[in-house]
Amino acid sequence: METNPRPCIAVEGLTGCAGELLVILENLDKLLPFVRVASFPFAQSQNDDGPVDIAFVEGSVSQPHDLEKLKRIRAKARWLVAVGNCAVWGCVQGGACAKCKVTDMLEAVYGQHSEIQALESRPLDAYVNVDVKLSGCPIDKTQFLSVTASLLKDHLPYITHKPVCLECKLNENPCVLIEKNLPCLGPVTAAGCGALCPSLGAACYGCWGPSQAPQMDAMATILSEKGYEALEIMNRLKTFGAPEHLFERMNV
């Protein structure tokens, strides 16, 4: 027995691409001097189900066993951190797929009378209390380490949701929305990626989820003035799980 046991963490995945798990795995060497990894099924075969100080959970709740797992994790974790767009917003399976009924999709893909069970895909906070939401697609490693450092000191981390435009301007990129008329969602998308796509001349497609108080109606107006169709605009805005209440001021 260690006299001063290191804080325990768990890293778990629900329905997602495992992108967050990879980022965490790639940076695990930096964490290992300070934490004990109680559970990380993606990366280790010996896992225990005991209480942990921090649980990082990736993926959205899309199947009944996701929900059971999430509730188990919530019950054993002091801090529950939703990592990645899937866990924070529901991502593509929550946004783009929300246009169809889940039963229709299930039947189209698996046929009638399939034994597959599916739920409408939802972010973690639809079911449990989430202490920290760290979005990203995938998450940024510096933010991840910084959030972990704060939680290890029992501080709630400071995560801003300023728009991608800020990082884009700080990088002094030419604006692709203005100069190339690309349907860039930088103005309404949370920063943290370092304005990756616009820095390479491409439009931001919103994969980090909405910025704080995004002006969706103004964004739609500007894109429609550039000639984009209303349906295309809404599809773009909603693809990564932006919740319905953000569109209340719009007639959609």
């Binding site: 300023k162 435009c165 800020l166 103005p187 103004a218 964004m219």
Partner: peptide, 13 residues
């Protein structure tokens, strides 16, 4: 204000 994106582009520039 209705057209404002709150993107903040006006200030760093």
């Amino acid at each position: 204000g209705k057209r404002c994106l709150s993107c903040g582009n006006c200030t760093p520039v």
